[in-house]
């Protein structure tokens, strides 16, 4: 009888120890991540970065949902995250509107929402803890500043002779297209001799960029600078410039954006001059934000991505490390 009592006591002690350990041990956090789909190379790099950063972190567990470009899939995914009582939701919005109800449900369940890259509409933003992503206006300004410095360093810009600039815009109405154009113009307005003589929609694709550049060159063979809203268009335009018998990078200064691998190769080959990074590798910063959240730190309402710029001075060195 006594023996049974001892066993019971032991079991009881063991149970207490286990449950205390369970509470004290670093509980893993479950992260729900709903991505828009795989619409572009940039998005693929973004998805992989976030997934890898979370799965490589032993204290985090990821529940992933690919919305395949459909909002209803995404809303369903967020609802299922709420039911599973995840600790935090990472979320890239497909469109801006229509998420109010489901975000409110998340708020009632006390699940913080961290948005990545694409925000929801302003009136729903108060459900969201923070948004991380690129500052497109700043990217446009960087391009402008780079150009100003390059022109000055090479003695091309004397402040009065007109500089003939062509611009390949991103898809009409897309946020990066609007903001990058704006940012570039913020700098251009301080240089009255910069003339953006040609500006067309290149749809963010190389084939469209090439076609538009072909037409630009027929209308005006004296273009000096090409500012493309992404590298794909710049790379397409480079081919058009070559076909016109001009030397890209020398006869026409070429500035792209996003910093994709192909553009690095073009810069190293001397066929392009500069690319402003639009960093899709948001994973590490997202994981950092989650840890800050766990530690009870207050997150800023906006987390800017760390981004740099590359030209002939640093492209060759950075090329081997580029992941996308």
């Amino acid at each position: 009888m006594k023996r049974w009592g001892k066993v019971l006591a032991l079991v009881a002690v063991a149970m207490v120890v286990v449950s205390v350990a369970a509470i004290a041990a670093p509980k893993t956090w479950v992260v729900g991540f709903t991505q828009v789909g795989s619409e572009s190379e940039w998005r693929t790099a973004d998805t992989i970065s976030v997934q890898d950063s979370i799965t490589n972190d032993p204290t985090l567990v990821m529940v992933y949902s690919d919305a395949q470009q459909k909002q209803e899939n995404q809303i369903k995914a967020i609802r299922s995250f709420i039911q599973r009582k995840v600790n935090v939701i990472l979320f890239t919005a497909i469109v801006e509107t229509g998420y109010g109800t489901v975000l409110q449900e998340a708020q009632k369940a006390h699940i913080p929402i961290v948005m990545i890259d694409r925000p929801v509409a302003k009136e729903d933003m108060h459900y969201v803890l923070t948004i991380m992503g690129s500052d497109f206006i700043k990217e446009g300004e960087k391009a402008g500043n780079w150009l100003a410095k390059y022109l000055k360093d090479n003695g091309i810009d004397d402040g009065s002779t007109p500089i003939d600039i062509a611009e390949l815009q991103g898809t009409t109405g897309a946020a990066p297209a609007i903001d990058r154009a704006q940012g570039f113009r913020n700098i251009a307005k301080d240089h009255p001799n910069w003339q953006i003589n040609h500006s067309q929609d290149g749809d963010f694709t190389s084939s469209q960029g090439k076609q538009v550049m072909e037409a630009f060159l027929k209308a005006d063979p004296k273009i000096q600078v090409l500012f493309a809203h992404n590298d794909q268009m710049a790379l397409g335009a480079i081919q058009a410039i070559k076909e016109a018998g001009l030397q890209p990078g020398k006869d026409i200064i070429i500035i792209g954006m996003d910093a994709v691998k192909g553009m690095f190769q073009a810069i190293v080959a001397g066929e392009a001059n500069c690319t402003i990074e639009c960093n899709p590798l948001l994973g590490p910063q997202a994981v950092q934000a989650i840890h800050d959240l766990r530690a009870g730190k207050k997150l800023p309402a906006r987390i800017w991505t760390i981004e740099s710029q590359f030209d002939a001075t640093n492209a060759a060195a950075a090329l081997p490390t580029r992941q996308y």
């Binding site: 795989s38 619409e39 190379e41 749809d203 694709t205 190389s206 084939s207 090439k210 790379l235 081919q239």
Partner: peptide, 13 residues
């Protein structure tokens, strides 16, 4: 299409 821009873009081609 692929040869014109010497690239293949599954999303946009």
């Amino acid at each position: 299409v692929c040869s014109t821009v010497m690239s293949a873009d599954g999303n946009n081609a």
